[in-house]
């Protein structure tokens, strides 16, 4: 909220007048921690998108009242400890294999909601085979794909999604597509497969985008109940630490550099291609 908004509108007046009203009474609460998000310290760096997406997941699970019916799979990557933050049953899979583990769970507990949560190295490099085949079989799971264009956990190496020219510790002079390959748009790729029913790309770098990302995650769970194939929600995210930027700089950089290459919006919906 900017300063101007604080001083010039009635809101300010109201705040002055109601100095002694009880603002934490339940009817006044406009924002609180979702029950599915545990009250523990997260290890994420300040401003990192992972934390925001965890919160969205928790909100959706709470609002859909499906906490007892959800089983999640955490990846190897910065979100490896997701099971410590979400108050649901979870399994921590080997690097790249989260969608295979999720397949195993969903096949034996088909009535449950199953999701995997994976980074770009996990899902689009070491786990490419599992990603493609899980989507191709149309497993009725939700895949949440956090694309920050980098290997966050291991300290900023090049990911399959690292942009052309982007510097990382293993592309110190910028990604050279002639020797390192071009950034992989795996989301567009899985949208080609008949097994996917809903494929979308969202971001959490601005409040409006956060709201849209939440809707996408919710849709991913809702569609899962009806069967019909894999739901795949990419979230273009940031990694301030390894991009070597402040959180705000990283969000601007994301908008200026990531989004032109990874455009936001639905790529495939159950009613046909968008």
């Amino acid at each position: 909220m900017n300063e101007k908004a604080l001083i010039d509108d009635e809101h300010f007046e109201h705040t002055l007048r109601s100095e002694h009203t009880e603002i934490i009474s339940p009817e006044n609460i406009v924002y609180e921690k979702p029950g599915t998000l545990l009250d523990v310290d997260m290890h994420y760096c300040p401003g990192c998108g992972h934390g925001v997406v965890h919160r969205l997941l928790a909100e959706v699970i709470d609002e859909m009242e499906i906490q007892s019916e959800v089983i999640g799979v955490a990846p190897v990557g910065c979100s490896v400890l997701a099971y410590n933050y979400l108050n649901i049953d979870m399994s921590e899979a080997a690097h790249g294999r989260a969608s295979a583990a999720a397949t195993g769970i969903k096949r034996v507990l088909p009535e449950k909601y199953v999701f995997s949560y994976q980074g770009d190295g996990d899902l689009a490099a070491i786990g490419t085979g599992e990603t493609i085949h899980t989507c191709n079989r149309g497993e009725n799971i939700l895949i949440i794909f956090i694309n920050n264009g980098i290997y966050g956990m291991t300290g900023g190496q090049m990911a399959p999604t690292t942009l052309e020219g982007m510097k990382s510790t293993t592309s110190p002079f910028g990604r050279n597509v002639s020797t390192m390959g071009a950034p992989l748009k795996i989301t567009e790729l899985v949208a080609q497969l008949p097994g996917t029913q809903y494929v979308t790309r969202q971001s959490v770098h601005k409040p409006g985008n956060v709201r849209k990302a939440k809707k996408a995650i919710q849709k991913g769970f809702e569609l899962q109940k009806q069967g019909g194939g894999t739901c795949f929600v990419e979230i273009v995210s940031n990694c301030p630490s390894n991009w070597k930027m402040t959180p705000i700089e990283s969000n601007h950089w994301l908008e200026d550099n990531m989004l032109p290459f990874y455009p936001l919006g639905d790529i495939k919906t159950p009613n046909g291609r968008k």
């Binding site: 399994s91 899979a93 295979a100 583990a101 195993g104 769970i105 096949r107 599992e130």
Partner: peptide, 8 residues
Amino acid sequence: NMVYGAAG
């Protein structure tokens, strides 16, 4: 890894 998930 399917075994891993399912056995869980």
